[in-house]
Design a protein around this nucleic acid. Sequence first.
RNA 1: CGGGGAGUGGCGCAGCCUGGUAGCGCAUCUGGUUUGGGACCAGAGGGUCGCAAGUUCGAAUCUUGUCUCCCCGACCA
Length: 508
Amino acid sequence: MKHALSVTRQQNFAAWYQEVISEADLAEESGVRGCMVIRPWGYGIWERIQKLMDAEIKKAGVENCYFPLFIPLSFFEKEADHVDGFAKEMAVVTHHRLVKGPKGGLIPDPESKLEEPLVVRPTSETVIGAAMSRWVQSWRDLPLLVNQWANVVRWEMRTRMFLRTSEFLWQEGHTAHADRADAMTETMRALEMYRAFAEGPLAMPVVAGEKPEHERFPGAVATYSIEAMMQDGKALQAGTSHYLGTGFAEASGIKYQDKEGAQQFAHTTSWGVSTRLIGGVIMTHGDDDGLRCPPEIAPWQVVIVPMLRDDDGDAAVLDYCRNLRLELLAQRAFGEPLRVLLDTKAAKASNKRWSWVKKGAPVIVEVGPRDVADGKAAVLRRDRLYKDDGKLATAFTPRDEFVAAAAAMLQDIQANLYAEAKARLDSNIARDVIDLAAHFKGDDAKFAGWVEVQWARPTGDGLTKIVEQLKALKLTMRNAPINAAPVDGVCFFTGAPAVERILIGRTY
RNA sequence: CGGGGAGUGGCGCAGCCUGGUAGCGCAUCUGGUUUGGGACCAGAGGGUCGCAAGUUCGAAUCUUGUCUCCCCGACCA
């Protein structure tokens, strides 16, 4: 069967992923290492994510604000673990002016060297901590709940579009609380918000759980994540929420006077999701014809493609399409009016159709002169593109019938995408594995999914040994699912009594 | 950052070994023929071959440097 892409997922998943990004006009290279240009269709998806996520954040009483891109180097030196975690991948600003160099061109002016270098934020705990120390004086100032939508920079050694780029877009929530219990409640609230968001608007099933000790955010007391399973069986960390204890509060001086008049350090949290989510959506829902964009985050949910012939009949077709669009705009799905595009671009209808197939528009509607005469529309669902015979499953539907059914169709597509991915996740977590090496076979191309084992959660050398053992098989621990079944056995690695269940898999 | 591969019209590639200033397919444009569906025929436009030095009468081709991308590794909230 002929597909819109030249590489299938089966043939080469990595090459397929890149082809989806380029063929769906999501993003392209920028000429700067690890940085990408996010094109309108890709950015439109991000805007949908922002809009829906922002509403959830605000619903939780968290307020938006904005902190500077540049952070004084000294801020980073305050929290030791934080330094260790990020020092290796920091972009540093050392000069503020350019002058003509001896060989022509421009060089940083040696005279303009900064007294104290500035780092480009890799995350904002330190600057926000400094502000919080000013804002928090009394127990009455807590909890303090802020969030920012921003770009951050981490000088990554190896980059992949959306999944790991040197610069990326994200939201980072930062909160300060009077005590551990309150901060933990917030940490878990954010985690649940991410789970619901991934499984709702993104139709991407995830497992929420706690990261093992060695996978924690630098400086965190506890790190939680949502992990999604990609179509090649690898895990993608799609969101994180951290309980930071009082470490950052101590480093930044976030103190408050409690009801008894004593000075106390606040307990802080931070949590974020990034443009990586788009990579997750691609690898969760994409097929050999490109992206399949979940309707809730699709910039356009219905795209109308008029079949114009450059003759007198065109006016009637366009007129029919405009009216169809207006009727669709009056419909609502997911609590919002439908987003409908009439694609009047001067291109061949068939090319436009395939372009929207590759971009993953959930519903593509073609309208030709005969449809106008018959009062119909040729409807194509992106989640069910082909009939059994390999031909496009275009449904010639009476126009009124389609308009009335459009919203339900979108919700059905959303549900279908989720159900498909959910079935894949559920059926590919093995819980009876005895030999990891045999299960994963060492072959990247083989879909092996994840393995859940019970373990004793050793620390120190005991943990290091296990991590190395897994590393030899190219495996990592993902998280300990918060809703896992209770333990009833011994540690997979050590034979000691188990204390929790943990997921193991290959990862991005 | 280490090892390997690659950069030639919008996209995918050939040419490079054996230097003589570029070619193919798709896409694009024009004309014609088609018209329920990823059309056909004919013609045309578009690239100083990632960038910079060097060797040479002459460099896409040889040498060196550099940037970017891909794969493996190390690293990675």
